[in-house]
Amino acid sequence: MTTHSRSFKIRVPATSANIGPGTQPPKAVSLEERPSITYTGEGAGEVPLDAYKNLTTRVALYVLRCSLTIHVHNEIPFGRGLGSSGAAVIAGVMLGDTLGQLGLSRERMLDFALMVERHPDNVTAALVGGFVGSYLRELDPRATQAASVPLSEVLPEYPPDAGPDWGREPPLPPLGIGHYVRFGWAREIRAVAIIPRFELSTAKAREVLPQSYSRKDLVFNMQRLAVLTTALSRSPPDPDLIYEAMKDRVHQPYRRDLIPGLPEVTSSITPGTHPGLLGICLSGAGPTILALAVNSFEAIAEDARKIFREKGVDVDWLVLDVVSEGSYVEEHKA
């Protein structure tokens, strides 16, 4: 991004949610007063206080529109379970913070992100980096109501012929919507992303999930999740422990029909058949499959490619590192 006096880059990583048994259903969220335009002195009762109608703010927006050049270079495929929408949301939050010189804390940035994304897994990992567990807080009714404002009011489209009723004050996020913790991650573990060449919308992937689960399946996932968060931090990693701990009964079995080849890949590529593999799972809502490994990356990916081809699906693959710094801004002064 450039202005006439300075330029800066915002870097946001891809993310993978729902690692094995770790799924995160959204909940909801202490309120503070929202900022607004105020006017005193002559004409105070006549001046419009809508940012798109007030002359001062309209001119400020005009100057910004004429002075900014925004270029986006994206390497995260859309609709593949690698957090493309979460990355876009975090990039927008950081762009607003940088341009406005707001000095927002990471926690406050997360509040703004969650007003748009509405679930914490991808945006939290994209913002802070590393291996992260997160949840949405349950707060008092006023905060819950504020955090439940329809997305169309948080991010309204601005039509060219906007009438006098358009553009209500945007809702300010409650404080502390999301909480998170960073787990340890063994440095030798890398991720092989096996990416089918078709998109799968998160909404469609959620539709196939049941409204309720058996106690047995929930206990199965909770036991493995408790083990997995520690197992991935230990060096050297234990493939037998991690492979079993990455199994899931809450979302992968229900999405198998949406992703031809998923059952075959996750069952036939194991630490026994591919030394160096630690575990394998669906990345987010899919269709990308994520294999954690310490070596044999190409063999894992190419054997997965063969299985997918038998189902008529072409794939691409990448070997990715887990970044610890999350999103950040590189600023260059002219």
Rank of each mutant, 00 (worst) to 15 (best):
E169G: 08
V313K: 02
D303I: 00
T270P: 07
I300N: 10
I177Y: 06
D314H: 10
V93N: 07
S16C: 10
L228C: 02
V154R: 08
R80F: 00
L136Y: 07
P237N: 00
L262F: 07
W185L: 09
R305P: 00
L102T: 00
A147C: 07
H251G: 08
M94D: 05
H73V: 15
H332E: 11
P156H: 04
I76T: 02
L282R: 09
S268M: 10
I289K: 03
Y62W: 13
G284S: 04
E302H: 09
Y158G: 00
L64K: 05
S324N: 12
I10R: 03
P263L: 09
M1Y: 09
D303N: 06
G133N: 08
D165V: 00
E169H: 12
V227H: 02
F198S: 09
S201M: 15
M246W: 04
D238V: 12
P260S: 09
R142S: 13
R190V: 05
V192R: 01
P141M: 04
L290N: 01
E325R: 06
A293Q: 04
G272Q: 14
E33N: 08
I194Q: 05
V265H: 04
H73C: 10
P239N: 07
L61S: 12
R197M: 12
I37G: 07
S283F: 11
T57W: 12
Q101K: 15
G100I: 06
L200K: 06
G176F: 03
D121Y: 01
M109W: 00
S7N: 14
G176S: 04
C66F: 09
L290S: 03
T98Q: 14
L127V: 12
A147W: 08
A334F: 12
L318S: 07
V93K: 01
A146C: 11
I259Q: 08
G261Q: 07
E207A: 14
D303S: 07
V132S: 03
H73E: 15
G92A: 07
L262A: 05
G83H: 10
D165L: 12
V47H: 10
H251V: 06
S85Y: 07
T273Y: 06
V192C: 09
V63F: 13
A285W: 04
S134M: 02
P35I: 13
N54D: 13
E42I: 14
D257N: 15
Y213N: 02
G20L: 03
S214W: 02
P260L: 03
R168C: 14
Y213M: 01
A143Y: 08
A205P: 01
L110Y: 06
P263Y: 07
P159C: 14
K306R: 14
R215I: 03
S212F: 05
N221M: 01
V322I: 15
I289Q: 05
E331T: 12
G92L: 05
P170C: 13
F78N: 09
V93H: 05
K204F: 00
R108H: 10
G272Y: 11
A299F: 04
S152D: 14
K333V: 14
T202M: 10
Q24D: 15
T3C: 04
K247G: 05
R58N: 08
H4E: 15
K333Y: 15
H119V: 03
S30R: 01
I300K: 02
E325L: 03
L282V: 11
R234G: 01
